[in-house]
Write a protein that binds this DNA or RNA. Structure first.
Lengths: 219, 219
DNA sequence: AAAATTATTTAAGCTTACTTAAATTTTTAA
DNA sequence: TTAAAAATTTAAGTAAGCTTAAATAATTTT
């Protein structure tokens, strides 16, 4: 499968999984930086290959085959991120950028080698789950967005769901890192901000960030 | 630059460097598995980009710019081979196969990270020199093809110049490995075969192999 | 040195993955 | 509920990187 197709099914998969907007061609086009027309064309083509269901003006839905494809690409992406993060001194943004390219030129054979080398990890450095070789995600995700946490409780960071360099720079600067502990000291519901304590520093995050930082309550 | 262009300049570079046949479109086409017409088209296009010199019916010659491009791709290829060989249990053929894909999706940034991690190696697992970040090969190659060695002398293997699985399988089976020591016990000049002693085994190699196994005399 | 062979080039055409512009449908707002 | 806005689709066109077939030039053989 071509890089264009892999990116297309990946975008649908991620949109379905994480985003609130619908899975119509326009939204996928926006994420891929292509025209709506191109997205419609691609959708029609992939429908003939039984990769997704396409009906005029309706949302795009991956078939089982399409979902497998998407998960296979996601697996390679997250394995690369894990490997690059472990081996080299690279930021979350950098590992993402490189993995975005490498994922399409990685055989299943090599992906398995990487996975094995890393001890078949279940999560990447962003806290995102890594599908296994069969395209299954076996972990269950109990984490919640920081926006939905409760004042006074303690949490550990489980996912940093972003591709954005500025966000990751901010995270690195403030110790916001997969596995680290934070205390939610105040929720400003009206202003949609959250105050947290991390590494003895108090910082206030707005919703742009509290919606993409996921945490688990500590027991 | 596209994968097609990178492979094209790489093929010219390798042809000039290693092979005896001329660098006309037909030979490049053969190596890339494309038609002669496609090779001619590509050559004309690259000439307009100052990547190579093209004159009807003449050999293709890389410009300085084109040579730099080729060396940059070769560098990435050989760095990937070195990394995969060190980290995973993969054969010479397997690391080649995977590197052939990864090389085109590797930023200079990542290539430098890999090089640094490996201690800026000067040779890859085949014994081929790795160009530095400036596209220079700083080592000088004093090795000779096994076909041109002298009876009774002892050599160490310095390069296994092939992409072929069967050849590498043969090498692995017989201890023909970068750095290993062999004794040339007999040259059958008439029949173009060479008898060597390796790991206490005597084997006779024909010219297909003695032309691509390079060695250095031991002092 | 002419004929035969081989290689290169030109020409026309194909597929993939896009584009822009116009037409159509759906959704939103008045 | 109708008009306006927004999104989707269709249509036509482009560039890259190929193909095959035919024309042309170079090379080899006799």
């Amino acid at each position: 499968m071509s890089t264009a197709i892999e990116n297309f099914v990946k975008a649908i998969y991620k949109n379905e999984k994480n985003d609130s907007d619908d899975t119509k061609p326009g939204n996928i086009a926006k994420k891929l930086g292509i025209s709506n027309a191109a997205a419609t064309d691609m959708a029609k083509k992939l429908a003939t290959k039984d990769i997704l269901h396409y009906e005029k003006y309706q949302e795009l839905k991956l078939t089982e085959k399409g979902t497998k494809m998407a998960l296979n690409v996601v697996r390679k992406h997250r394995l690369w991120e894990s490997l690059l993060f472990r081996m080299f001194d690279m930021s979350l943004h950098e590992i993402h950028r490189e993995s975005e390219l490498l994922e399409h030129q990685t055989s299943d054979f090599l992906a398995n080698k990487i996975s094995e080398y890393l001890g078949n990890p279940k999560f990447d450095p962003h806290g995102d789950p890594i599908p296994n070789a069969q395209g299954e995600i076996t972990t269950k995700d109990t984490s919640v967005a920081l926006a939905n946490t409760q004042e006074g409780k303690t949490y550990t960071i489980s996912r940093l769901m972003s591709d954005d360099k500025e966000f990751f720079d901010f995270c690195a600067l403030n110790g916001l890192k997969y596995g680290n502990t934070i205390v939610v000291t105040k929720q400003f519901s009206k202003n949609k901000m959250t105050q947290i304590l991390i590494n003895n520093n108090t910082i206030i995050l707005n919703q742009d960030f509290t919606n993409i930082i996921y945490v688990n309550e500590t027991n």
